[in-house]
Amino acid sequence: MTETFKAFRVNHDEDAFSADFTELTLDDLSEGDVTIRVHYSSINYKDVLATKSNNKIIRNYPIVPGIDLAGVVMASDHPSFKEGDKVIATGYDLGVNHDGGFSEVARVKGDWLVHLPEDLTLEEAMIIGTAGFTAAISIQLLEDNKMTSTNGPVLVRGATGGVGVMSVMMLNAIGYKVIASSGQTEHHEQLKALGARTVIPRIDEVTDKALASTEWQAAIDPVGGETLTEVLKRIQRHGAVAVSGHLSGAEFTSTVYPFILRGIRLLGADSVAFPMQRRQHLWRRLSKDLKPEKLHDIKTVIPFSELKTYLAKAEKHDFLGRIVVDLRPEA
Rank of each mutant, 00 (worst) to 15 (best):
M1R: 10
E3I: 05
A19E: 07
T22G: 02
L24C: 10
L26N: 03
E31V: 11
T35P: 05
Y40S: 06
S42E: 03
D47M: 01
L49P: 06
K52N: 08
N55D: 03
I57F: 05
D68E: 14
D68Y: 08
V72R: 09
V73K: 00
E83R: 15
G84M: 12
V87W: 09
V87I: 15
L94Y: 13
V96R: 15
N97D: 14
A106L: 00
R107T: 08
G110W: 05
D119A: 11
L120H: 08
T121V: 00
E124S: 07
E124P: 06
A125G: 02
A125P: 03
T130I: 12
A131P: 02
A135Q: 07
Q140T: 11
L142W: 10
G152F: 12
V154G: 04
G158P: 01
V165M: 01
M169T: 05
M169P: 07
M170R: 01
S181T: 08
S181H: 06
E186D: 09
E189T: 11
Q190K: 15
Q190M: 15
L194W: 05
I203L: 11
L211Y: 02
A219L: 09
P222I: 04
G224H: 09
E226G: 03
T227C: 11
L228F: 00
K233E: 03
G239L: 09
A250E: 12
F252A: 00
T253Y: 00
G263H: 07
L266K: 09
A269V: 10
A273Y: 14
P275Y: 13
Q277H: 14
R284I: 03
R284L: 11
K294D: 03
K294W: 00
T300I: 06
V301W: 01
P303C: 12
F304D: 12
F304V: 09
E306H: 10
E306L: 11
T309L: 07
A312I: 01
A312P: 02
A314C: 13
E315S: 14
E315D: 15
K316Q: 11
D326Y: 14
E330Y: 11
